[in-house]
């Protein structure tokens, strides 16, 4: 698709989609959103970029191979499940902490393993969808 309008517009669209995907990832636990849908949105961003500028450039923009990204995501998701072993809970039990403020409700930051898991899922989805799209793009 060699359209100047599309490839110029794609740059803005891709940036927006990537920011939106991170927004979706972060609001995920209590509101609609999460790692899966975030990863899908990010993957759509890369697919748009792929259509506008070609597979090679999109892969270069991703820096690492999409398969490796998915694999690292799997490892992160798996690792988040093992944190609970330190606290005597079963596998994958969510661990929540809070920093700043007086109680959980007023805390500034609330680091937790659930978000780490979601980040893993985000990477798995992003990596596998992009690699799938690359595979089809190269074949057709």
């Amino acid at each position: 698709m060699n359209s100047i309008i599309f490839s110029a517009g794609a740059r803005i669209l891709v940036a927006l989609l990537l920011v939106f995907s991170v927004f979706m990832l972060l609001r995920g636990h209590n509101l609609p959103g999460g790692g899966f849908i975030g990863g899908l949105i990010a993957a759509v961003g890369f697919i748009v970029y792929m259509l506008a500028c070609g597979t090679t450039q999109a892969k270069a923009a991703l820096r690492v191979s999409p398969e490796a990204l998915a694999m690292v995501g799997l490892l992160i998701a798996l690792a988040s499940g093992f944190v609970s072993i330190l606290f005597g809970d079963p596998f994958f039990t969510g661990q929540w902490w809070w920093v700043g403020g007086d109680s959980y409700a007023t805390a500034v930051v609330r680091p937790n393993t659930v978000l780490v898991f979601d980040v893993g899922v985000y990477l798995v989805v992003l990596g596998s969808i992009v690699s799938l799209a690359c595979a089809f793009e190269e074949e057709v």
């Binding site: 899966f36 596998s128 799938l132 595979a135 089809f136 074949e139």
Partner: peptide
């Protein structure tokens, strides 16, 4: 749906190959 999508994508690629 997600699993089915993955499997069908694989099957489609296999059929093409």
């Amino acid at each position: 749906i997600v699993i089915g999508f993955g499997l069908l994508a694989f099957t489609l690629a296999l059929a093409f190959e």
